[in-house]
Computed example of a mutant assay.
Amino acid sequence: MVSLLGRLRHMIFTPDVGEASLAVRGFPSRNSRAAAALEGAGTTFITGLGVGTECATAAQTAARLAEVDSARRGFAFEGAAMAMAIRDGLPLGHRRHLAEYRAVADEHRYMTYVGAGWALARLPRPLHRAALSGLTDQVLIWLALDGYGFHQAYFHTDRYIKDKYVDPRPPLVSPDHHDYAPHAVDQGIGRALWFVSGADPALAHTLIERFAPHRRADLYAGLGLAATYAGGASETELAHLIESARDYRECLWQGAIFAAEARARAGLVLPETEATLFALTGLRIADASRIAIETLPTRPTVDGVVAFEVWRTRIRSHCPAAAPMAPKGEM
Protein backbone atom coordinates (compact mmCIF):
# COMPACT_ATOMS: atom_id res chain seq x y z
CA MET A 1 0.00 0.00 0.00
CA VAL A 2 1.31 3.44 -0.92
CA SER A 3 1.63 5.87 1.98
CA LEU A 4 0.32 9.42 2.01
CA LEU A 5 3.92 10.66 1.76
CA GLY A 6 4.50 8.38 -1.22
CA ARG A 7 1.44 9.73 -2.99
CA LEU A 8 2.62 13.26 -2.29
CA ARG A 9 6.07 12.56 -3.76
CA HIS A 10 4.43 11.01 -6.80
CA MET A 11 2.24 14.06 -7.31
CA ILE A 12 5.18 16.48 -7.03
CA PHE A 13 7.83 14.71 -9.09
CA THR A 14 6.03 12.55 -11.65
CA PRO A 15 4.78 14.17 -14.87
CA ASP A 16 1.75 12.98 -16.76
CA VAL A 17 2.52 10.12 -19.17
CA GLY A 18 1.19 12.35 -21.93
CA GLU A 19 4.51 14.19 -21.78
CA ALA A 20 6.03 11.25 -23.65
CA SER A 21 3.69 11.66 -26.62
CA LEU A 22 5.52 12.41 -29.86
CA ALA A 23 2.87 14.99 -30.68
CA VAL A 24 3.38 16.76 -27.36
CA ARG A 25 7.14 16.75 -27.82
CA GLY A 26 6.85 17.89 -31.42
CA PHE A 27 8.72 14.86 -32.77
CA PRO A 28 7.71 13.18 -36.04
CA SER A 29 5.55 10.06 -35.94
CA ARG A 30 6.53 8.41 -39.19
CA ASN A 31 4.89 5.03 -38.64
CA SER A 32 3.16 3.01 -35.95
CA ARG A 33 6.18 0.80 -35.28
CA ALA A 34 8.50 3.71 -34.55
CA ALA A 35 5.88 5.61 -32.56
CA ALA A 36 5.13 2.58 -30.38
CA ALA A 37 8.82 2.05 -29.62
CA LEU A 38 9.52 5.67 -28.71
CA GLU A 39 6.31 6.48 -26.88
CA GLY A 40 6.46 3.16 -25.06
CA ALA A 41 9.95 3.97 -23.83
CA GLY A 42 8.86 7.40 -22.61
CA THR A 43 5.67 6.35 -20.86
CA THR A 44 7.42 3.41 -19.20
CA PHE A 45 10.19 5.70 -17.95
CA ILE A 46 7.55 7.93 -16.36
CA THR A 47 5.86 4.88 -14.86
CA GLY A 48 9.16 3.81 -13.30
CA LEU A 49 9.74 7.32 -12.00
CA GLY A 50 6.32 7.25 -10.37
CA VAL A 51 6.93 3.88 -8.75
CA GLY A 52 10.30 5.07 -7.46
CA THR A 53 8.79 8.17 -5.90
CA GLU A 54 5.91 6.47 -4.15
CA CYS A 55 7.39 3.20 -2.85
CA ALA A 56 8.78 3.21 0.66
CA THR A 57 11.89 1.17 -0.18
CA ALA A 58 14.13 0.33 -3.10
CA ALA A 59 13.25 -3.35 -2.71
CA GLN A 60 9.55 -2.61 -3.09
CA THR A 61 10.31 -0.49 -6.14
CA ALA A 62 12.34 -3.23 -7.84
CA ALA A 63 9.67 -5.83 -7.09
CA ARG A 64 6.97 -3.76 -8.74
CA LEU A 65 9.10 -2.91 -11.76
CA ALA A 66 9.93 -6.58 -12.30
CA GLU A 67 6.31 -6.97 -13.43
CA VAL A 68 6.75 -4.52 -16.33
CA ASP A 69 6.82 -6.08 -19.80
CA SER A 70 10.33 -7.16 -20.67
CA ALA A 71 10.47 -5.03 -23.84
CA ARG A 72 10.20 -1.87 -21.75
CA ARG A 73 11.37 -2.92 -18.30
CA GLY A 74 14.78 -1.28 -18.65
CA PHE A 75 13.15 2.11 -19.16
CA ALA A 76 11.11 1.61 -16.00
CA PHE A 77 14.24 0.88 -13.97
CA GLU A 78 15.90 3.92 -15.51
CA GLY A 79 12.99 6.13 -14.43
CA ALA A 80 13.04 4.72 -10.91
CA ALA A 81 16.78 5.51 -10.68
CA MET A 82 15.94 9.14 -11.38
CA ALA A 83 13.46 9.02 -8.49
CA MET A 84 16.04 7.52 -6.12
CA ALA A 85 18.60 10.19 -7.03
CA ILE A 86 16.06 12.95 -6.45
CA ARG A 87 15.14 11.49 -3.07
CA ASP A 88 18.83 11.33 -2.10
CA GLY A 89 19.35 14.90 -3.25
CA LEU A 90 16.56 16.37 -1.17
CA PRO A 91 17.35 17.37 2.43
CA LEU A 92 14.62 15.05 3.73
CA GLY A 93 14.99 11.51 5.01
CA HIS A 94 18.04 9.34 4.47
CA ARG A 95 20.39 9.40 1.50
CA ARG A 96 20.77 5.70 0.78
CA HIS A 97 17.94 5.28 -1.71
CA LEU A 98 20.16 5.02 -4.78
CA ALA A 99 22.73 2.78 -3.07
CA GLU A 100 20.00 0.43 -1.88
CA TYR A 101 18.42 0.51 -5.33
CA ARG A 102 21.70 -0.49 -6.96
CA ALA A 103 21.92 -3.45 -4.62
CA VAL A 104 18.49 -4.82 -5.56
CA ALA A 105 18.61 -3.87 -9.26
CA ASP A 106 22.19 -4.71 -10.15
CA GLU A 107 21.16 -6.30 -13.45
CA HIS A 108 20.08 -2.80 -14.51
CA ARG A 109 23.41 -1.24 -13.54
CA TYR A 110 23.86 0.88 -16.66
CA MET A 111 20.30 2.17 -16.68
CA THR A 112 20.67 3.12 -13.03
CA TYR A 113 23.60 5.40 -13.78
CA VAL A 114 21.86 6.93 -16.79
CA GLY A 115 18.59 7.41 -14.92
CA ALA A 116 20.30 9.10 -11.98
CA GLY A 117 21.68 11.62 -14.44
CA TRP A 118 18.16 12.80 -15.27
CA ALA A 119 17.86 14.02 -11.70
CA LEU A 120 20.73 16.44 -12.28
CA ALA A 121 18.56 18.33 -14.76
CA ARG A 122 15.74 18.71 -12.22
CA LEU A 123 17.68 19.50 -9.04
CA PRO A 124 19.59 22.68 -8.11
CA ARG A 125 23.34 22.29 -8.57
CA PRO A 126 24.11 22.33 -4.80
CA LEU A 127 22.08 19.11 -4.46
CA HIS A 128 23.87 17.20 -7.22
CA ARG A 129 26.56 15.69 -5.03
CA ALA A 130 24.02 14.20 -2.63
CA ALA A 131 21.88 12.97 -5.53
CA LEU A 132 24.76 10.95 -6.95
CA SER A 133 26.18 9.81 -3.61
CA GLY A 134 24.87 6.29 -4.20
CA LEU A 135 26.87 5.86 -7.42
CA THR A 136 30.28 4.46 -6.61
CA ASP A 137 31.64 3.18 -9.93
CA GLN A 138 33.95 5.93 -11.17
CA VAL A 139 34.16 4.38 -14.63
CA LEU A 140 30.40 4.32 -15.19
CA ILE A 141 29.75 7.63 -13.43
CA TRP A 142 30.00 9.41 -16.79
CA LEU A 143 26.78 7.68 -17.83
CA ALA A 144 25.03 10.10 -15.48
CA LEU A 145 26.01 12.90 -17.86
CA ASP A 146 24.66 10.82 -20.73
CA GLY A 147 21.33 10.82 -18.90
CA TYR A 148 21.59 14.56 -18.29
CA GLY A 149 22.32 15.21 -21.96
CA PHE A 150 19.36 13.10 -23.06
CA HIS A 151 17.04 14.99 -20.73
CA GLN A 152 18.18 18.38 -22.01
CA ALA A 153 17.82 17.49 -25.69
CA TYR A 154 14.48 15.72 -25.13
CA PHE A 155 12.85 18.54 -23.16
CA HIS A 156 14.74 21.55 -24.57
CA THR A 157 15.02 20.37 -28.14
CA ASP A 158 15.22 23.73 -29.90
CA ARG A 159 18.05 24.91 -27.70
CA TYR A 160 20.14 21.75 -27.71
CA ILE A 161 19.38 20.42 -31.20
CA LYS A 162 18.38 23.39 -33.34
CA ASP A 163 20.70 25.92 -31.70
CA LYS A 164 23.47 23.38 -30.88
CA TYR A 165 23.78 24.78 -27.35
CA VAL A 166 26.77 23.63 -25.30
CA ASP A 167 26.34 23.87 -21.53
CA PRO A 168 29.32 25.88 -20.24
CA ARG A 169 28.93 24.32 -16.77
CA PRO A 170 27.61 20.77 -17.07
CA PRO A 171 27.02 18.94 -13.79
CA LEU A 172 30.14 17.85 -11.94
CA VAL A 173 30.14 14.06 -11.67
CA SER A 174 33.83 13.52 -11.04
CA PRO A 175 36.47 15.67 -9.34
CA ASP A 176 38.88 14.86 -12.16
CA HIS A 177 38.82 15.39 -15.92
CA HIS A 178 35.82 17.71 -15.92
CA ASP A 179 36.86 18.77 -19.42
CA TYR A 180 35.64 15.36 -20.58
CA ALA A 181 32.05 16.16 -19.56
CA PRO A 182 30.91 17.54 -22.96
CA HIS A 183 31.70 14.20 -24.60
CA ALA A 184 29.48 12.28 -22.17
CA VAL A 185 26.72 14.89 -22.50
CA ASP A 186 26.87 14.65 -26.29
CA GLN A 187 26.44 10.87 -26.17
CA GLY A 188 23.18 11.54 -24.32
CA ILE A 189 22.16 14.16 -26.86
CA GLY A 190 22.84 11.62 -29.59
CA ARG A 191 20.52 9.16 -27.85
CA ALA A 192 17.83 11.82 -27.69
CA LEU A 193 18.23 12.44 -31.42
CA TRP A 194 16.80 8.98 -32.03
CA PHE A 195 13.60 10.20 -30.37
CA VAL A 196 13.72 13.70 -31.85
CA SER A 197 13.97 12.17 -35.33
CA GLY A 198 11.09 9.77 -34.73
CA ALA A 199 13.48 6.80 -35.06
CA ASP A 200 14.20 7.86 -38.63
CA PRO A 201 17.89 7.06 -39.32
CA ALA A 202 18.01 9.37 -42.35
CA LEU A 203 16.65 12.35 -40.41
CA ALA A 204 18.89 11.57 -37.42
CA HIS A 205 21.90 11.53 -39.75
CA THR A 206 20.88 14.89 -41.23
CA LEU A 207 20.49 16.42 -37.78
CA ILE A 208 23.89 15.19 -36.59
CA GLU A 209 25.64 16.44 -39.71
CA ARG A 210 24.49 19.96 -38.79
CA PHE A 211 26.60 19.83 -35.63
CA ALA A 212 30.25 20.84 -35.53
CA PRO A 213 32.50 17.99 -36.73
CA HIS A 214 34.21 17.59 -33.35
CA ARG A 215 30.85 16.69 -31.75
CA ARG A 216 29.66 14.10 -34.24
CA ALA A 217 31.55 11.06 -32.93
CA ASP A 218 29.85 11.27 -29.56
CA LEU A 219 26.47 12.01 -31.13
CA TYR A 220 26.68 8.97 -33.39
CA ALA A 221 27.67 6.81 -30.44
CA GLY A 222 24.51 7.88 -28.64
CA LEU A 223 22.44 7.33 -31.76
CA GLY A 224 23.70 3.76 -32.14
CA LEU A 225 22.92 3.09 -28.50
CA ALA A 226 19.35 4.37 -28.71
CA ALA A 227 18.63 2.71 -32.04
CA THR A 228 19.65 -0.65 -30.62
CA TYR A 229 18.09 -0.33 -27.18
CA ALA A 230 14.79 1.35 -28.14
CA GLY A 231 14.35 0.04 -31.68
CA GLY A 232 11.93 1.41 -34.25
CA ALA A 233 13.86 1.21 -37.54
CA SER A 234 14.16 -1.43 -40.22
CA GLU A 235 17.36 -3.22 -41.11
CA THR A 236 17.32 -1.54 -44.54
CA GLU A 237 17.11 1.89 -42.94
CA LEU A 238 19.95 1.05 -40.60
CA ALA A 239 22.07 -0.15 -43.52
CA HIS A 240 21.57 3.21 -45.19
CA LEU A 241 22.58 4.93 -41.95
CA ILE A 242 25.85 2.99 -41.86
CA GLU A 243 26.57 4.00 -45.43
CA SER A 244 25.71 7.67 -44.99
CA ALA A 245 27.60 7.93 -41.69
CA ARG A 246 30.48 5.68 -42.75
CA ASP A 247 33.16 7.98 -41.27
CA TYR A 248 31.57 7.33 -37.88
CA ARG A 249 30.76 3.65 -38.25
CA GLU A 250 32.98 2.81 -35.27
CA CYS A 251 30.92 5.16 -33.12
CA LEU A 252 27.61 3.60 -34.14
CA TRP A 253 29.26 0.24 -33.41
CA GLN A 254 30.32 1.33 -29.94
CA GLY A 255 26.86 2.64 -29.04
CA ALA A 256 25.17 -0.49 -30.31
CA ILE A 257 27.45 -2.65 -28.19
CA PHE A 258 26.70 -0.55 -25.11
CA ALA A 259 22.99 -1.17 -25.71
CA ALA A 260 23.47 -4.88 -26.33
CA GLU A 261 25.36 -5.33 -23.07
CA ALA A 262 22.75 -3.32 -21.13
CA ARG A 263 19.94 -5.54 -22.42
CA ALA A 264 21.95 -8.74 -22.10
CA ARG A 265 22.92 -8.02 -18.49
CA ALA A 266 19.27 -7.40 -17.62
CA GLY A 267 18.03 -10.43 -19.56
CA LEU A 268 15.85 -8.21 -21.75
CA VAL A 269 17.07 -9.12 -25.24
CA LEU A 270 14.35 -8.88 -27.89
CA PRO A 271 14.32 -10.14 -31.47
CA GLU A 272 14.47 -6.50 -32.60
CA THR A 273 17.52 -5.97 -30.40
CA GLU A 274 19.25 -8.86 -32.12
CA ALA A 275 18.27 -7.60 -35.58
CA THR A 276 19.34 -4.02 -34.96
CA LEU A 277 22.61 -5.03 -33.40
CA PHE A 278 23.40 -7.31 -36.32
CA ALA A 279 22.49 -4.59 -38.82
CA LEU A 280 24.82 -2.09 -37.15
CA THR A 281 27.69 -4.39 -36.17
CA GLY A 282 27.31 -7.82 -37.72
CA LEU A 283 27.50 -9.28 -34.20
CA ARG A 284 25.26 -11.45 -32.08
CA ILE A 285 24.27 -10.34 -28.60
CA ALA A 286 26.60 -12.71 -26.77
CA ASP A 287 29.62 -11.53 -28.74
CA ALA A 288 28.76 -7.86 -28.30
CA SER A 289 28.24 -8.32 -24.58
CA ARG A 290 31.58 -10.12 -24.28
CA ILE A 291 33.39 -7.26 -26.00
CA ALA A 292 31.80 -4.73 -23.65
CA ILE A 293 32.67 -6.74 -20.55
CA GLU A 294 36.22 -7.62 -21.55
CA THR A 295 37.14 -4.05 -22.52
CA LEU A 296 35.71 -2.37 -19.41
CA PRO A 297 38.52 -0.76 -17.36
CA THR A 298 38.69 -1.35 -13.63
CA ARG A 299 40.19 2.03 -12.66
CA PRO A 300 38.82 5.60 -13.11
CA THR A 301 41.74 6.54 -15.36
CA VAL A 302 44.09 4.59 -17.61
CA ASP A 303 47.44 6.26 -18.31
CA GLY A 304 45.89 9.60 -17.44
CA VAL A 305 42.89 9.14 -19.74
CA VAL A 306 39.28 8.98 -18.51
CA ALA A 307 38.51 5.27 -18.25
CA PHE A 308 35.05 5.71 -19.74
CA GLU A 309 36.66 7.06 -22.92
CA VAL A 310 39.23 4.26 -22.83
CA TRP A 311 36.32 1.81 -22.70
CA ARG A 312 34.66 3.40 -25.71
CA THR A 313 37.95 3.44 -27.64
CA ARG A 314 38.63 -0.22 -26.88
CA ILE A 315 35.17 -1.16 -28.12
CA ARG A 316 35.62 0.85 -31.31
CA SER A 317 38.91 -0.93 -31.95
CA HIS A 318 36.96 -4.18 -32.46
CA CYS A 319 35.03 -2.72 -35.39
CA PRO A 320 36.31 -4.50 -38.54
CA ALA A 321 36.81 -2.81 -41.90
CA ALA A 322 35.65 0.55 -40.56
CA ALA A 323 36.61 3.73 -42.36
CA PRO A 324 38.99 5.94 -40.38
CA MET A 325 36.97 7.95 -37.88
CA ALA A 326 36.92 11.70 -38.37
CA PRO A 327 38.99 13.49 -35.71
CA LYS A 328 37.16 14.92 -32.75
CA GLY A 329 39.21 18.07 -32.54
CA GLU A 330 39.20 20.20 -29.42
CA MET A 331 36.12 20.76 -27.30
Rank of each mutant, 00 (worst) to 15 (best):
M1N: 05
R9Y: 04
I12K: 04
F13R: 02
T14V: 10
T14C: 03
G18C: 10
S21I: 00
G26E: 10
P28R: 05
P28N: 07
S29D: 13
R30E: 06
A35I: 10
A36H: 13
G42S: 06
G42C: 09
T47M: 09
G52A: 07
G52F: 01
A56R: 08
T57C: 11
A58N: 07
T61E: 06
A62F: 08
A66D: 13
A71S: 11
R73H: 08
F75E: 00
A76C: 12
R87E: 00
G89D: 13
G93Q: 05
G93E: 05
L98E: 02
E100I: 08
Y101Q: 05
A103Y: 03
V104H: 12
E107M: 13
E107P: 06
H108F: 15
R109H: 15
Y110N: 11
G117L: 07
A121D: 09
R125Y: 01
H128T: 11
A130M: 12
Q138D: 14
I141M: 11
W142K: 12
L143S: 11
G149Q: 01
H151I: 12
A153Q: 01
R159G: 09
Y165I: 02
D167G: 03
D167Q: 11
V185A: 03
D186I: 05
R191V: 00
L193M: 11
D200E: 08
F211T: 07
F211G: 05
H214D: 13
R215K: 12
A217Y: 08
D218R: 12
L219N: 03
A221G: 15
L225W: 00
A230M: 07
G231V: 02
T236S: 14
T236C: 04
L238F: 03
L238V: 04
H240D: 15
I242M: 13
A245T: 01
Y248T: 08
W253K: 03
R263W: 05
R263L: 07
V269H: 08
E274T: 14
L280A: 02
T281R: 05
G282T: 04
G282I: 02
L283F: 03
I285R: 05
A292N: 02
L296V: 11
P297I: 14
T298R: 15
P300V: 08
T301I: 09
T301Y: 06
D303H: 09
V306Q: 11
A307Q: 11
F308V: 13
R314D: 09
R316Q: 12
S317R: 15
A321C: 14
A322T: 03
A322S: 09
A323D: 07
A323E: 13
P324F: 10
M325E: 12
A326L: 11
P327S: 09
P327G: 06
E330T: 15
M331P: 14
M331A: 15
